[in-house]
């Protein structure tokens, strides 16, 4: 049986997640920021799948017929579902804003402060 340490996946996921965060922080284009958030969600997805497999492996050692780990993969499915819905609304908002100010620069979002 060929195995990979879970840590690799964790590190990968963390790295992706962090890159996503940095992207959110550094970019001014709202769309790209949004994309970075998607990146973060994907990092989580990877992690979940990896954990799913890890738990499955652990359970498999005890019970060949185990379905352990399924829930995480389904969770990932739901995340994707949600992400899709989110994108729909998000892009709608962005388009609406663009229609009004002809810009998607986040720094222009400063009418509301203090």
């Amino acid at each position: 049986m060929q195995v990979m340490p879970i840590n690799y996946y964790i590190f990968l996921s963390i790295a992706l997640f962090t890159i996503g965060i940095v992207g959110v922080l550094t970019r001014r284009n709202v769309i790209i920021i949004f994309m970075c958030i998607e990146l973060m969600l994907n990092a989580v997805n990877v992690l979940l799948v990896a954990f799913s497999k890890m738990h499955h492996l652990n359970a498999y050692a005890l019970d060949r017929a185990t379905t352990a780990g399924t829930e995480a993969q389904l969770f990932v499915f739901f995340i994707m579902v949600v992400a899709a819905a989110e994108v729909t609304v998000g892009l709608a908002i962005i388009v609406m804003l663009y229609r009004n100010i002809h810009s998607v620069d986040i720094n222009f979002l400063n009418r509301l402060k203090h």
Binding site: I33, I106, N107, N110, K113, H114
Partner: peptide, 8 residues
């Protein structure tokens, strides 16, 4: 002023 209005 912490409430700068900047999402970033």
């Amino acid at each position: 002023f912490l409430q700068s209005g900047q999402v970033g």
